[in-house]
Amino acid sequence: MNGKMVNAPSRGIIPERDADKSLALETIHLGISFGGLKAVDDFNLTLGRTEIGGLIGPNGAGKTTVFNLLTNVYAPTEGTIIVDGKDTRGLKTFQVNRLGIARTFQNIRLFNNMSVMDNVLVGLHHEMDYGFPKALLRLPGFYKSERIAKKRAMEYLSLFNMQDMAEHKAGSLPYGAQRRLEIVRALATNPTILLLDEPAAGMNPSETAELMENIRKIRDTFQICIFLIEHDMSFVMGLCEGIAVMNFGRIIAKGTPEEIKSNPQVIEAYLGREKGK
C-alpha cells in the first residue's frame, strides 16, 4: 500500500457546490505591462468547474505572471478576470482568496517555523469564528471553535496521511511532504480554483506519477477546478484536459493534449524553427 495516496475524506470537508455548470474562471483580454514590456498580453482563457487545466511554455513566457494576475498580486493593466461569476477588479489578494482562488508556489513557501498543524490552521483562518476578546478571556466559545478547527485541520492532513506530522515544524519536513503540505494548506482555504505552480518540480518519476493520481483525486473529491503550470510534458499531457501554451506573454495555442502535441507553433516555440523553412 502506498501511504501517500489521497484518502477519501469524511463528508465534513467536502464543500457543497451548486450543481450549475457555469465557469469557474474566465479571463478576457487580460494583460499587464511593466514599463514598456508587455509581460502578459491578450490572455483569454476559460476553465470549467471541475476541469484540470495546464499552462505550459518556455521559461520567461509569463506563466507565473498569469498566476500573480489571477490572485491580484499584480493588478492587471488590461482586461478582466471573472472568478465564479464575479469580477475581481480592485480586490485585495486576500479577498481574491476568499472568493475562491488558492495557490501553491514554484519554490515552496510554507510558514517554516510554524507547526504543520498551524500552517493548515492559517489556511482555515477565514472560518474560525472567534474574536480576540473570546480568545483573551479563553471563553468556552474559544475552546469549541479551536477544537473544531483542529479537527478539520486533521481531516485535511489525513488526505495525505500526514496526521502524525501535525506537531512537526513545517520547515523540518522532507521535500515531498512540504509539497503535499502546501497543497493541503491551499485546500484548507476552501477554493473553487486551485492554482499549482510547478507541483512536480524536483520529483522523481514515481513521485510524479503519484502526484498525478493525487491531483485527480483532489479534483474528484472536492469538485474543484485545478489549473497548473508544469514543465514535465508527460505529466501535463497525462493529467490535463485542456492546455494553454504561452510564449512571449501571449497564448500561442489552446486545446486538448493531442491537439497541442501536433501543433506546429508549439513545436516551434519549444524546439525552434528548422533552418531554411
Binding site: 489578494t93 486576500f94 482568496n97 488558492a102 513557501r109 510558514f111 489556511g123 482555504t189
Partner: peptide, 9 residues
Amino acid sequence: GAAQLMGIN
C-alpha cells in the same frame, strides 16, 4: 505574500 494568498488581511 504567502499569508495574503491564504486569505489573511
